[in-house]
Write a protein that binds this DNA or RNA. Structure first.
Lengths: 193, 193
DNA sequence: GCAAAACGATGATAAATGTCACAAAATAGT
DNA sequence: ACTATTTTGTGACATTTATCATCGTTTTGC
């Protein structure tokens, strides 16, 4: 179960892990399974765990005053999930995170991250790289605010084609910040060309 | 000139700087002045420097096919600027960064950051904290995609009230991803209440 | 295998926002 | 001080996108 994670770490760092470090990692990353629709985090809770997705698909979303869900992030295998704000600042989260497909996760508390993992060079290197990637990805997403619905969709198709296979259209629409009807029409128009 | 930066570093780390470290910092952070409208980075260039803004205000923006500017980020004193994607990946930037007011900057190359600074604990701690803050701030901005123009503006007023003093409305509008006319009408309606 | 739920498409209409045009007000440069 | 430029406000209208309603299709749970 931890093999996928170890591979991921080695692919995201230049320093190899020692046998002792591998042991620490196997201890602090606790496996957890979620059935479809089960919550990983609910609004109002403090996000106690960050998780590496070994298998499955998840979504992070906000529910507005009218009860409408707004998808903030969609995540699949080999991605990490958490509400970083809540996880780091220990504040109640404004978001829900749940399983869209049955999931296998490896969960990590903030205390274990700061305590046992921060001494491992490979982990630090990986973390930096992930922060860089995250910053780059979100900068692009912010940049897409100025695009039309059609352009935003086209960009998503380019950037995350896997999403189209894994998530239904109304989730994709919500992720893009448009209505499901608009996305549906967009696609049928695009198909005509 | 470097005093502001040293204060900033000490406020963002628990480890104090040694005298030797202060010397290193003074060497690798090169002062640079920009007059209003001067470029710090132009589209197509690789972003060679990250900069700490000692004084002044800057903007990062994209120019679309119709020549319209779309503001990605506005920054003032004690903020950092760079196109992180270009700075780290050494790819040509899609953005422009220029001075909105006359600026005093302290600039840092990626090589100096990786070489001379990565050995300084206070810098590493600061960098991590900045990455966390950046992730939190952009998550909020991404979350605002699902809000109306009015709600997005209200959030900006809450989060960055200084911006209203420092930048004209059409830049704020562009930052929010709405037209300047819409923002103007929004404000006059809100004022009536 | 069947009922229920979820999903996607589409028309009619409404609401939000953009575009264009122009004028007034504020600001900067000399 | 005064002219040029930038910035802001507002009306008329166009366009994009949302909302509501409905229906056929697909998927899911038992």
């Amino acid at each position: 179960m931890h093999e996928t994670l170890l591979t991921y770490i080695s692919e995201h760092s230049s320093t190899p892990l020692t046998a002792a470090e591998v042991e620490v990692i196997k201890e602090v990353f606790v496996p957890k399974k979620l059935k479809k629709r089960q919550f990983f985090l609910q609004e109002g809770e403090v996000c106690k765990y960050a998780a590496f997705i070994v298998k499955g698909a998840m979504r992070q979303y906000r529910v507005d005053d009218k009860g409408v869900e707004h998808i903030l992030r969609l995540s699949i295998e080999n991605w990490w999930v958490s509400d970083r704000e809540s996880y780091i600042m220990l504040t109640p989260s404004r978001y829900n995170i749940d399983a869209w497909e049955d999931c296998e996760l490896l969960t990590l508390t903030r205390a274990d991250f700061l305590g046992s993992l921060s001494a491992i060079p490979a982990i630090n290197e990986m973390t930096k790289k992930m922060d860089d990637n995250f910053a780059i990805a979100t900068q692009r997403r912010v940049s897409s605010i100025s695009l039309s619905a059609e352009e935003r969709y086209a960009e998503l198709v380019q950037t995350y084609p896997e999403f189209l296979q894994r998530f239904p259209q109304h989730l994709i629409a919500s992720y893009l910040g448009i209505s499901r009807e608009t996305l549906s029409r967009l696609r049928s128009h695009a198909a005509k060309k």
